[in-house]
């Protein structure tokens, strides 16, 4: 517990502001044009459809940003990892701490977005009570995934690649801004490979109180990807740092 608290740095401003801006701009703006969308056979107000997607985005952005740029700065520029592994802690402890911290940031930021969503009446009990747990869990997944890039990246500018090739496509096609059912079937299948799609689905279905079989698959996907990316990232980090 103690480990990740130490990496506490007070800079969690933008990651929740961005989704809130989208909520206003897209939700209110587009909402007027679009009106309602069909999701899982039901007609839903666009802004209500959009809100869970933005919670998911805030989860993804927070953890991914923290465990790429944030971790890289601590590792490479501030040599914090070197300082810590001279104490009884090991590199596994350090990476675990970073990932827990990334997930904690996802939790904090998504709670802020969630609070706005609740106030705006866009999510309902009791499903929304589970959302913070899902936020933390999927936060762990995005943090571990980010840590893999941090372990292999040659310099800080190279983070452009995972952001452009992974985060931006997920942002747009992860079931966030439109129902995936409008995509051709190959598009839907591809979207289901993306971690954000499952995050969005889980959170959306929870905020609508409609758990579907696909959500269990989503949960399994999240658990599995988290475990795999966690071990891969620890392994790669050891390779990078232990010489």
């Amino acid at each position: 517990m103690d480990v990740f608290l130490t990496t506490w740095k007070t800079n969690f401003l933008p990651p929740f502001l961005e989704p809130l801006l989208y909520l206003v701009a897209m939700g209110l703006g587009f909402g007027v044009l679009i009106g309602q969308v069909v999701y899982e056979g039901q007609f839903i107000d666009y802004i209500k459809f959009l809100a869970p997607g933005l919670i998911a985005i805030s989860i993804m952005n927070s953890a991914f940003f923290e465990c790429t740029y944030g971790s890289y700065v601590r590792m490479h520029y501030q040599k914090t990892f070197d300082a810590i592994i001279a104490t009884p802690l090991s590199i596994e402890d350090v990476i675990t701490g970073e990932i827990l911290w990334g997930a904690t940031k996802s939790l904090i930021n998504s709670l802020i977005v969630l609070a706005v969503v609740i106030v705006a009446g866009l999510a309902s009990f009791p499903g929304l009570i589970v959302i913070p747990f899902i936020a933390f869990l999927t936060g762990l997944m995005f943090a571990s995934l980010a840590m893999i890039f941090t372990a292999i990246i040659p310099n800080i500018d190279s983070f452009n690649y995972p952001f452009f090739l992974l985060i931006t496509p997920m942002f747009l096609f992860g079931g966030t801004f439109f129902p995936l059912s409008v995509l051709p079937s190959w598009g839907q299948t591809t979207a289901l490979l993306l971690p954000l799609t499952h995050t969005t689905n889980l959170i959306r279905d929870l905020s609508f109180n409609m758990l579907l079989p696909v959500d269990l698959i989503g949960l399994l996907y999240v658990a599995l990807l988290t475990v795999i990316t966690f071990f891969v990232s620890v392994h790669l980090m050891k390779k990078r740092l232990i010489k």
Binding site: D2, V3, T6, I84, P88, L89
Partner: peptide, 8 residues
């Protein structure tokens, strides 16, 4: 004090 935390 932060460093001390790593030593529990």
């Amino acid at each position: 004090t932060t460093y001390a935390r790593y030593f529990d």
